[in-house]
């Protein structure tokens, strides 16, 4: 019997190594798997490269992972969120590396990784600083920049519902990067508010088919807080 549901956070985090590339879902704090991030802190892996849209808000979730010094480099589109106190301090002190990627390019690099596409051309960033040093090629009279797939060793995902095969359903705009990242990592770990019986999820509403998911943890935390 396939059962991807793990009973403890320690079991969920087993095997994550120092130096891993960790994809973390969410847009701000919505769809961000804070319980898994706390689990990763307890697990102890360090020198991580984190890929996430933002660089943490306040002192919880991703910000806490940064604050306890586990992240060497962050790849994100928008570090300047409402309250990026932790990231800002680390960045000013030169203790964290920042790779700014246009949001759509980040999403597509992740999608490409999950889809077996090593690189692609995009019109985004042509003629700007973010295209410097990159191959530019013309197609049908327009310029495009070559971007490479962005693979994760681990993806941390937040879902609304999950079953034991790892099928995931999302809620409203909390879907965001989660399905794209789930497909882009070697080891995909999801936290879900509700665990349902196999067959209970409406197949039409599955946002991430279980084939992309390795482990599921039940985390019924209630409502997210926008901070």
């Amino acid at each position: 019997m396939i059962d991807k549901i793990v009973q403890t956070m320690a079991a969920a985090m087993a095997g994550i190594r120092d130096g891993a590339v960790v994809l973390i879902g969410g847009f701000g704090s919505i769809g961000q798997p804070n319980a898994l991030i706390d689990g990763l802190i307890d697990q102890g892996a360090k020198e991580l490269t984190v890929v996430a849209n933002n660089a943490g808000v306040g002192h919880a979730g991703l910000a806490r992972l940064l604050e306890v010094g586990r992240v060497r480099k962050i790849v994100c589109s928008y570090p300047r969120t409402t309250d990026p106190v932790v990231f800002e301090r680390l960045y000013r002190e030169g203790r964290i590396e920042l790779d700014v990627v246009p949001q759509g390019t980040m999403a597509e690099r992740l999608r490409a990784a999950g889809a077996g596409i090593p690189a692609f051309y995009t019109p985004t960033s042509v003629g700007t600083r973010l295209a410097e040093g990159k191959e530019v090629r013309e197609f049908s009279g327009r310029q495009y920049v070559l971007e490479r797939a962005l693979f994760g060793d681990v993806a941390l995902i937040e879902a609304w519902e999950a079953d034991r095969w790892g099928n995931l359903a999302y809620r409203s705009s909390a879907r965001n990067f989660n399905p794209v990242m789930a497909a882009a990592a070697k080891l995909t770990i999801a936290q879900a508010q509700h665990i349902v019986e196999l067959g209970a999820l409406d197949p039409e509403k599955v946002g991430t088919p279980g084939i992309f998911v390795d482990r599921v943890v039940h985390v019924p935390y209630g409502e997210p807080v926008v901070t």
Partner: peptide, 27 residues
């Protein structure tokens, strides 16, 4: 709806006929 925000990370609503998509589709 605490799972529904906009690009400025403020709460918004969905109009009848509205839909959600993941980031790769959004872009």
């Amino acid at each position: 709806n605490r799972w529904l925000i906009n690009a400025s990370k403020k709460y918004v609503t969905l109009v009848p006929g509205g839909s959600y998509m993941h980031h790769a589709d959004s872009f």
